[in-house]
Structures are given as structure tokens and as C-alpha cells.
Write a protein that binds this DNA or RNA. Sequence first.
DNA 1: TTGATTGCAAAGCATTTGCATGCTA
DNA 2: TAGCATGCAAATGCTTTGCAATCAA
Lengths: 180, 180
Amino acid sequence: MLKLEDMAKKIEEFKNEKEIFLEHIQKAGLRRTAQRDLILEIFLRTEEHLTSEDLYWLVQKEDPSVGHTTVYRTLKLLTEAGLAREVRFGDNKTYYEHHYNHEHHDHIICTECGKVVEFFSPEIESMQDAVAHKFGFIPTHHSLRLWGVCEDCQHKANESHPTMASGAQPRVRVKTIAGN
Amino acid sequence: MLKLEDMAKKIEEFKNEKEIFLEHIQKAGLRRTAQRDLILEIFLRTEEHLTSEDLYWLVQKEDPSVGHTTVYRTLKLLTEAGLAREVRFGDNKTYYEHHYNHEHHDHIICTECGKVVEFFSPEIESMQDAVAHKFGFIPTHHSLRLWGVCEDCQHKANESHPTMASGAQPRVRVKTIAGN
DNA sequence: TTGATTGCAAAGCATTTGCATGCTA
DNA sequence: TAGCATGCAAATGCTTTGCAATCAA
């Protein structure tokens, strides 16, 4: 696919997500505001896992008047609208990632450097549903996280290095193709 | 198996877990104290998912002089020793469950009543390992949680009822046999 | 005796809430 | 105009930390 087409698709996608958002706002009897528009805008253009805090600082750069609270509240709103998804990687922070128009996926997290790889396994998905039904549950959603040592960190294993547990490590998000 | 044998096995298991604990304490150059003994004791005899808070109150009943802090610190210790495992069900609390001598398992959580069912699926387990290796990771551990509506709540679906999101619901732990 | 352990109070941290003010529909 | 939204400060809830006193080895 051409770059131009990629961009066109991206723009299209943004438009759709904004429409979804406005629709949700209307249905819920809420109001469209400049802050919500800006926060959504910046959220959409950022293809990363980010915390409310992260997003807050990005928003700050464009409009320093926006407060922490509004970002929190808007992220909840985006989650309700199906545009964002909450994820946790074990560092006791809530990350948000795009949800609408994005394939569902799970995460592998490196215990050494904090790198996060996204993957998708249809087999695991269907077995999860099977298990849920076996216990009489109608499944709604799930969370699967795998932890381990990534290739890079296995090679660095000789050198001494701090582990993730011992301090904040930069988190890297690695885009990945489907798993199985 | 006779009840008597069950009890004998239980006692045996407790003894082992205590030994593990003492061993861990020794290896780490730490010290055995009355508080740690008591907290471990009560943790072991409680076959539930419990929070530090929960455990604190149970301990209080037997020794009101023990503080919150010590329970927190001891639970961390038990986790390091491999006797406890931290779990989260989405209500933003850290639960602890027995880990040593207990089969590894995952959880299905009812989104309506908060019921938690434990299950184990060897197939899912091995697929998880396969996925990790595919991405170059050496897997260490994982967390799989399924959410859905349990059988009871499906039947109650006609009556009006609050959802879990709208308030604290009693959490029930259901002991379960292996999943697949 | 030495240094780990405890309990209290205080601090942290992420998140939520109360409320007066501002703004959308 | 009605009432939702905002931003600040304060409150919350869970967890950790500083510290003086205590206790195990």
C-alpha cells in the first residue's frame, strides 16, 4: 500500500473516531467542549500506551489551561465510548491505548527493561471463550499478560544491570504483527 | 480419601510452608518474629483471596498490637518466599492467595456479582509459552483474567440489580476443579 | 551488642470529589 | 437559561517510608 493511501486511511480513521465520540456524547446527553476535542485529538495522534499523566503533559503543550482532572475524566469518557482501553502492566499505573478500529490484542512485558510487545493469538482467544462457557459464564472481555525476559535483555544478561523492580524504567512499545 | 487424611495432609502442608518461610528468612539474613509467625499462620489457615486490609483485621483479633505496616511488609515477604501470590480483579485492590503447594490457576470474574472462579487450562498455558518464545521472550509468569456474567447472574437478569461498577460488591471465591 | 523489626505518624502516588465559576445547547 | 463541564484544592484509598523504640541472633 502506498504511503499516501496509508495517510488517507489514517485520516479517515480519525474522522470516524471523532464521529463516534460526538455520537456518544450526544447519546449520553453530554456536551462537546474545546478541552474534550483537544484531548481526543492528541490521544488519537499518539500511537502509544499512555497514562493520564502522559496525556496531560502533551495537552499542556497545546493548552496549558487544561487541568489534570479533565484529562482523567475525558479518558474515562473515551473508554466508555469504546475509543480507548485501559491496560495495566504491573507498575501500578493505568495506561490507555486505542481501542476502536484497532485489533484486540494482548501484551508481553519484559521484566528487565519494561518493553511491551503486542500480540494476538486466535487460538488462545477461542480457548478462553471455551473455558468461560464451560463454567457457565457469558464472556465479556479478558486480560492476558505474559511476562518474561526479552531477547535484548537475555543478551545483556552478562553485564550487571538493574531490574525493573528496582526503579522506573523507560517503557517501550513495540508494534507487532499477529501472533499465531 | 478420608477426612482424617485430608487433615493430616493439610497439617503437613502447613508445616512445609512454615519451613519454606523460615528458610527464606534465614537465607535473606532476616529475623523470625512473633508477628511474622502469626501473620503467616493466619494467612495459611485462610483459604481465600484476601487483601492486606482483610488480613490485618484477622490478625487484629488475635493480637491487636500488630500494625498495618507489618502486615503489608510480611505479605511482600511471603510473596518473595513464594508462599503468596498477588492478584488483581479490577477493583483496584491487591489480593493475595496461596501460592506454594497450590496449583497455578487463572480466574474468571463475574462482572455482576464479583464472584471469582479459579480454573486451569494446560492448553492455554502451553500456548502462552509458545507465543512468548515466538517473540524471543523467556517467559517467567503470566496473568490471565476472564470477565463475564456468571450463571446465577444470567438468571437474575430479569430483575433489576446494580452492576459491580456501581458499588462495592461482596466477593465470593469459588473453588473449582481443573478447567480443561 | 548489632542490626533487623516494629508501629506510629507522616508522606507518597494515582485518582476522585466538592464546589464556585464558566460555557454549551 | 438550565445544567453539564471545568479547574482548583482538598479528599480519598492504598501503600510506602522515616524514625525512635524494641527485640532477635
